[in-house]
């Protein structure tokens, strides 16, 4: 594959990074997806959303799934969480096949799915309470999780009193309070403004560092994917197929300064090419009949 001559090859890894990946693949497999297929029957025929998708995620890995809109990312993550049944294939979490939603797999949705009638703390307590933990224990645990996401001041606020970023932090705390083995996140920061999103990404890395958890992160944002992940699963659209699994050569710990590192830009460019193949660039926009020519506006 041809790469940009000015940027380093995305496959070039420093010895530390290479060693890290070597250690990573030796970890137990947290999530194993094999031959996953999903077809929807619609009035206009059968839509194949996912076609023979296979990959695996190791313990404590942070894997991003990226792809063009409509390629089946949400469908994939919903199947992983057990909210949807696949038409074919299998999902295993630590060797156990998934047959439905369960507290061992947490999920953070793109929309804010907080329970509006529960305060922040009560939202975070939801999972443990459902599992039968006493109110007292759940309460003190919830406080810790809320502190972890930095919302102690708001523990008694209702969701409608929070900003979008704060809501998503509560949603993360709520999912983590269940102590799931894998956490799925479907474009969790998609609805946030660029600045808040950047902050949230750093928050997420911080949390991931402190909590024993494996994360599958869905996004359509290249920078987000590269910044967060160990590996990136690139999906093709129509039907959704695995295009490539890319190892991110950017060393950890990550920081926002790395956004302009050559290794960062190199792998970013490569994934960009995968999603938007060169030569398939957008055609020139048609000139409107009413357009006004202005030399300063080009």
């Amino acid at each position: 594959m041809k790469t940009d001559p000015l940027l380093p090859d995305y496959r070039e890894q420093t010895p530390e990074v290479a060693a890290r990946f070597a250690r990573l693949v030796k970890r137990p497999v947290a999530l194993e997806v094999s031959g996953l297929t999903k077809r929807f029957e619609t009035p206009r025929g059968i839509v194949t959303a996912l076609d023979d998708v296979s990959f695996s995620v190791h313990k404590r890995e942070l894997l991003s799934v990226i792809g063009p809109s409509g390629c089946g990312k949400s469908t994939l993550v919903r199947i992983l969480a057990g909210l949807e049944t696949p038409s074919g294939g299998e999902v295993k979490v630590y060797g156990e096949p998934v047959s439905g939603p369960g507290p061992d797999r947490g999920m953070v949705f793109q929309g804010y799915t907080l329970f509006p009638w529960r305060t922040v703390k009560e939202n975070v307590m939801f999972g443990p309470r459902m599992a039968g933990t006493s109110a007292f224990t759940a309460d003190s645990e919830a406080r810790e999780w809320i502190e972890l996401v930095g919302l102690s001041k708001f523990e008694n606020a209702y969701p409608h009193q929070l900003s979008g970023g704060m809501k998503q932090r509560v949603a993360i705390a709520r999912a983590l309070a269940n102590q799931p083995r894998v956490l799925f996140m479907d474009e969790p920061f998609g609805a946030l403004d660029a600045q808040t999103r950047c902050q949230m990404q750093s928050y997420l890395l911080e949390i991931w560092k402190n909590v024993d958890i494996t994360i599958v992160f869905i996004t359509h944002d290249l920078d987000e994917a590269v910044f967060l992940s160990d590996r990136i699963l690139v999906l093709d659209a129509n039907p959704g197929r695995v295009r490539e699994v890319v190892e991110v050569p950017v060393p950890r710990p990550r920081s926002t300064e790395q956004l302009f590192d050559p290794s960062f830009l190199g792998v970013r460019k490569h994934i960009d090419n995968l999603i938007h193949p060169p030569g398939q660039e957008q055609k020139e926009a048609p000139v409107l009949r009413m357009a006004v020519a202005d030399p300063d506006v080009v």
């Binding site: 057990g82 909210l83 939603p101 949705f109 329970f115 999972g127 459902m130 599992a131 999912a175």
Partner: peptide, 17 residues
Amino acid sequence: DPSLLEAAQTLGAKPRQ
């Protein structure tokens, strides 16, 4: 909102809960 039900499911709520 059905997503609230889905969220509850992923948090381990049983049908009756």
